[in-house]
C-alpha cells in the first residue's frame, strides 16, 4: 500500500505546482498566508512549492538549464517578508484543464445536488456541466448519480439553517412514538439518497441527528437559534456512538458487513465463524436493531444477548403472522 501511495502524492504535488504557477502569475505580489488561505493548504506547503518553482525550468537551447530558462522569484521578498513575486516565467501561461475523471467527479456531484432547494435552477447546473466538459482534456468519464428528490421538509430544513431560526416537526423515534420536536437546525447532511438534519434538540438538550423522511408537519419559526455550530461540537461522523449504547454480537455474511459499517465500533473484535464474520454492533436500543436485522434476512443474525435475539424474533414473527391471515 505504501508504494501505491507514493506516486499519488507526487501526482498531487504536481497538480498543485501546475495550479499554483498561474495563480501567482495573476497576482504580482501575494503573501504566503493569502495564497495558503486561497488554496486551503498549510503555509509551509506554499513555501515548499515556491522554493521548487524558483529553481525549475526548461533545458533550453543549451540543454543545461541556463538562468533565463528558469523561473525566478524575488528571493529577498520571499525569504524576508514571506511574499511571493515571480520575476521570470517559463513554459506555463495558463491554468491546466481538468482530467476526464476530475471533471466527471464534479459533474456527478453537481447532478446529485440538483435537488437542493437553492439549486432548483437547473439551467445553472447545465451551464456548469457544459463548462466542465469543455474544460476537460477528454470527454468526462461515464459516472453519474441520480439527482435526489426536492422535498418540502428538506427545503424548510435548509431555509431554517440559512436563516438561523428554530424548526419544529413531528418525529417518530424508532420505538414508533411520535413527538413534536423543536431544534436549532445546524447542518443539513446526506448519505446517498437519505437526508438528515443535525441540530440542537431543545427537549433533549443535546445534539441530535434526524432522518428527514421520519419528520413530518415541519414548521419554521421566527425564534432565533440558541446554539450555533461553533457552540456545540458537531462531529464529522454522522452516526456517533453514545455511552448509553447497547452492544450486540452478530454474525454477518462477509459481503454484507459493509452495510453495517456505521454500527460497528472502531475497536470491535471481528473473527470468522463458519464463513461468517462475528462482530459487535452498537445500537441505541433493540427497537432500532430489530428493524436493521429484519432488513438483512439470512445475511445478519444476532448471537447475543438473548434479549436482543428475542426482540428480533418477535418482530419478524409478528410480520410473518400478518401473511398467515
Amino acid at each position: 500500500m505504501a508504494e501505491r501511495a507514493k506516486p499519488r502524492q507526487a501526482q498531487d504535488k504536481l497538480a498543485f505546482l501546475l495550479s499554483l504557477v498561474p495563480y501567482l502569475m495573476d497576482h504580482d505580489r501575494v503573501s504566503v498566508s493569502t495564497a495558503a488561505a486561497h488554496f486551503g493548504v498549510p503555509e509551509e506547503q506554499i513555501r515548499e512549492a515556491v522554493r521548487l518553482i524558483g529553481v525549475s525550468g526548461i533545458p533550453g537551447d543549451t540543454a543545461t538549464y541556463q538562468h533565463g530558462d528558469l523561473f525566478d522569484i524575488a528571493w529577498d521578498d520571499f525569504e524576508d517578508n514571506d511574499e511571493i513575486v515571480i520575476t521570470n516565467l517559463v513554459a506555463i501561461d495558463d491554468s491546466p484543464r481538468f482530467s476526464a475523471r476530475e471533471a466527471a467527479a464534479l459533474i456527478a456531484g453537481l447532478q446529485y445536488l440538483s435537488a437542493l432547494p437553492e439549486q432548483a435552477d437547473r439551467e445553472a447546473i447545465a451551464t456548469l456541466t457544459a463548462k466542465l466538459s469543455r474544460g476537460a482534456s477528454a470527454d468526462p468519464s461515464q459516472v453519474a448519480v441520480e439527482g435526489s428528490e426536492a422535498d418540502e421538509t428538506l427545503a424548510l430544513a435548509r431555509e431554517s439553517v440559512a436563516k438561523g431560526v428554530q424548526l419544529s416537526f413531528d418525529y417518530l423515534n424508532s420505538q414508533g412514538q411520535a413527538e413534536r420536536r423543536r431544534v436549532d437546525p445546524l447542518r443539513v447532511e446526506s448519505v446517498d439518497a437519505d437526508w438528515y438534519l443535525r441540530g440542537w434538540d431543545h427537549g433533549r438538550e443535546a445534539v441530535r441527528t434526524f432522518r428527514l423522511d421520519r419528520a413530518s408537519n415541519p414548521e419554521i419559526t421566527s425564534d432565533p437559534i440558541t446554539h450555533s455550530v461553533s457552540d456545540v461540537s458537531l462531529p464529522d461522523k454522522l452516526f456517533e456512538g453514545s455511552v448509553d449504547d447497547l452492544l450486540v454480537v452478530i454474525d454477518v455474511a462477509p459481503g454484507a458487513a459493509i452495510l453495517l459499517a456505521d454500527y460497528i465500533p472502531d475497536n470491535a473484535d471481528t473473527v470468522e465463524v463458519d464463513g461468517r464474520l462475528r462482530t459487535t454492533v452498537r445500537v441505541s436500543h433493540y427497537h432500532g436493531l430489530k428493524r436493521l436485522i429484519a432488513s438483512m434476512p439470512g445475511v445478519a443474525t444476532v448471537v447475543e444477548p438473548a434479549e436482543a435475539r428475542a426482540v428480533v424474533a418477535e418482530w419478524a414473527a409478528a410480520g410473518a403472522a400478518r401473511y398467515a391471515q
Binding site: L18, P22, Y23, S95, L116, L186, V191, V229
Partner: peptide, 21 residues
C-alpha cells in the same frame, strides 16, 4: 485545486451542508 488556480474567491465557506455519496 485546479479551480482555485483561476483565483476566484468564494463568498462564504459552505458549512451548513454536508452532502455525501
Amino acid at each position: 485545486i485546479k479551480l482555485r488556480s483561476l483565483g476566484v474567491s468564494t463568498t462564504e465557506p459552505v458549512l451548513s451542508y454536508a452532502p455525501r455519496v
